[in-house]
Design a protein around this nucleic acid. Sequence first.
DNA 1: AACCAGGACACAA
DNA 2: TTGTGTCATGGT
Length: 290
Amino acid sequence: MTERVERILLPVRDYGLDATLTSGQAFRWRQRGAGWEGVVGGRWVYLESSAAGIHAAANATGGDHGWDWLVHYLQANVILDDILHTFPDDRPLGESVAACRGLRLLRQDPWECLASFICSSTKQIVQIQQIIELLCQRYGQPLVTPTARSPEFSFPSPARIASLSEADLRLCKMGFRAPYLREAAQAIDTGRLDLEHLRTLPCPVARAALMELPGVGEKIANCVLLFAYGFPEAFPVDVWIMRALRKLYFPKRKPTPNRLRRFVETYFGPNAGYAQQYLFHFMRTRRDVI
DNA sequence: AACCAGGACACAA
DNA sequence: TTGTGTCATGGT
């Protein structure tokens, strides 16, 4: 089939593309040449940053709303300084911001984000990437890509995954998470959970709704609230963040879950989720410092 | 080669 | 409420 690649320059400042795409919030970006190749909203995309901004290449779609979908995904219209100014002024956060210049939060598709993080529990990021890639290769739909390029696949829909057996899913190396993913897909496919409706709800209500799903606890729910719905106060606490918080802010003895919740939602301010992402990426890339 | 990974859950005390 | 075992897989 024929395809035509369109290109654009998004003139965005303070955008750390590498940090953003490798900070464990999205799992389908692969380094290719000087940039990154991935799939957004069912389209193949190539991104490369330069001093002028982000160069993007994607298939022509028929000119509906131009590149709005990509600007929205990248959150390229967000004024990063406005976010950073709301952070508390302490040393670990200051070092994290300095080391992770331009780190952003993406605005992902809720289903892909939810499914990805259901597969994430006690897995390293590289393994999560492998699981997601297997899932897409096996059960996604082939996408139009530039010629002479390896085939890309869409992220399988809730209906598609709901139609699979647990054994089918285990072929993607997701182990005990397979029944969780299957049941979540069924809940959404049958309409028992409406992911679009969650956008309109207050953050705590949306969190409670997500946690109704098997295999979705507070941490995974917060990842979806932050990375897909854009609730900037959602604060996922994984093992890395827990280690950082205990060492930096609770050196005496470890806080109870309730104490920890109250701390992160008061201390880090209205954009606690952004602060969390900076601490997380800093911890994982400069392990020696903290 | 042990140890651990962007956890959740059932169950014990 | 807080602690422990279990689940599956493979990277480091």
